[in-house]
Amino acid sequence: MSTPGAVMPAARKASATVVLLHILGDTGHGRAEAFAGIRSSHIKYICPHTPVMPVTLNVNTALPSWFDIVGLSPDSHEDEPGIKQAAENVKALIDQEVKSGIPSNRTIWGGFSQGGTLYTVLTTEQSMAGITVLSRWPPLGASFPQGPVSGVNEDVSILRCHGDGDPSVPLMSGSLTFEKLKLLVNPATVTFKTYEGMTQSSCQQEMMDVRQFTDKLLPPID
């Protein structure tokens, strides 16, 4: 189970929360460092750690990982129980934030690569302000919703970002995810941005786009 990890408190009374999930092999501290320069003073940022486990794709090397990864091709076997358990862990973090006084619709979930939160958001009953999906591939293709989702997040705002030089998760995977999302939620609420030359990493323009997306959906409450 994930732990709260790196928590960046709001500089003043928190009125919103952003949960950021890290890439395979990283920790919450890595995500916290990446977002340190684009924080907003009224937002609390939570960057959870994940357990260390053997990862098939990495020759069973034990790494911080949200779930096992067998391969990155569309037809690769997926660790469905692991993905679903990771989703439940993230949902539990949001439940804690709601109990502390932050409504779920004042929350954005964000993730980088393996830490993408697509499955979590589109299968939860918690109303989200939005999600940021960075360098992610489509999760659970066989069991993921195959048609429009109904409920609290059918109009959720989604920012999908990907580098055109990513050797691990090619841009085509990002495009497939974008097309899939447009079938699942209101297409008008989904934005896809690409970044020339960016690999499996982030760039300044991507971070500024994430900041703009976040500030638009989670403005200060006076």
Rank of each mutant, 00 (worst) to 15 (best):
M53H: 15
S168L: 14
P51F: 03
M1E: 05
T17E: 04
P220L: 02
N89I: 01
G163K: 05
Q114H: 10
P74F: 11
N89S: 12
F144Q: 12
T199G: 00
D68M: 11
P81G: 06
I69A: 06
G163I: 01
A14M: 07
E196A: 13
P48A: 08
V190N: 11
T132F: 06
A32V: 05
T3C: 00
A87G: 09
S76G: 09
V59M: 13
Q200A: 04
S2W: 06
L63N: 05
S73K: 15
K44R: 13
P170L: 07
T61E: 13
G71M: 09
Q146V: 09
S2R: 14
E206F: 04
D164V: 08
L134S: 10
K193G: 03
S40A: 15
L93G: 05
V210C: 05
K180V: 02
K182N: 12
G174K: 09
A87E: 13
W109M: 13
P219T: 00
V52D: 04
K91D: 12
F35T: 10
L184W: 15
T132A: 05
L217Y: 04
P187H: 06
E33P: 00
Q126P: 04
I43K: 13
S104N: 05
P167D: 07
Q146D: 07
T194G: 04
A10Q: 09
I38Y: 01
I69M: 10
S201V: 01
V152H: 02
G116H: 08
E80C: 03
E88D: 10
A6D: 05
C47G: 00
G174L: 05
Q96G: 07
G130D: 03
V210A: 00
H77D: 12
Y45K: 06
P145A: 05
A62S: 12
D26F: 01
A129L: 04
M8P: 00
I108Q: 04
M208G: 00
V90F: 09
R136T: 15
S175C: 10
L176K: 15
T132L: 10
L21V: 09
V70R: 09
K216N: 06
S65D: 12
V149T: 12
T123G: 09
V149I: 15
A10P: 08
G25K: 14
T191F: 02
C203N: 14
G5K: 11
V152A: 07
V149G: 03
G197D: 10
T177S: 15
H42T: 01
V149M: 11
S15W: 01
D215H: 06
S202D: 00
S41G: 00
T199S: 11
I83Q: 07
G165S: 14
G5S: 07
Y195M: 07
L20A: 08
L217P: 06
I43G: 03
R39M: 03
P219Q: 02
M1Q: 12
